[in-house]
């Protein structure tokens, strides 16, 4: 295992953690959604880099190409990207409605509004 190989993984892990941290800490809903996007896409990198074969090429059959990268991770990530956009869209729709209902999309303000309501 070379340093470079580790470096790839670690950079991905750092990205994941940036996204994850953003989700946990930021009180703004749009920011949370963006953080979620970063978190998810970084996981995609993990999958795609697993499918890579050094010296391989895109898994579409062509003459003269012997080594192809693994197509399966690509398929999985295509699905996962769709799931990601679906989640983002729904989250954004909720954000719009929450803004209309509470006049804010920040946790602090909403918590304050919520504390005044009866159970």
């Amino acid at each position: 295992m070379t340093f470079l190989s580790f470096f790839n993984y670690w950079a991905v892990i750092v990205l994941m953690m940036i996204g994850y941290y953003c989700v946990i800490v930021r009180g703004n809903m749009i920011k949370k959604i963006i953080g979620l996007g970063i978190f998810q896409t970084s996981v995609f990198i993990l999958f795609i880099s697993a499918g890579k074969v050094i010296g391989g090429s895109t898994p579409v059959l062509r003459d003269g190409v012997e080594v192809y990268s693994n197509p399966l991770p690509h398929v999985l990530i295509l699905t996962a990207i769709v799931v990601g956009i679906a989640t983002t869209a729904l989250g954004l729709a909720l954000t719009v409605r929450i803004h209309e209902a509470y006049g804010s999309i920040d946790d602090d303000a909403i918590d304050a509004a919520e504390a005044q309501e009866p159970q």
């Binding site: 895109t58 192809y68 990268s69």
Partner: peptide, 15 residues
Amino acid sequence: LLDAGDVALTEAAVG
């Protein structure tokens, strides 16, 4: 770069 053309296209279009 990682040979995932389809995924790249999709990520660009979606993300």
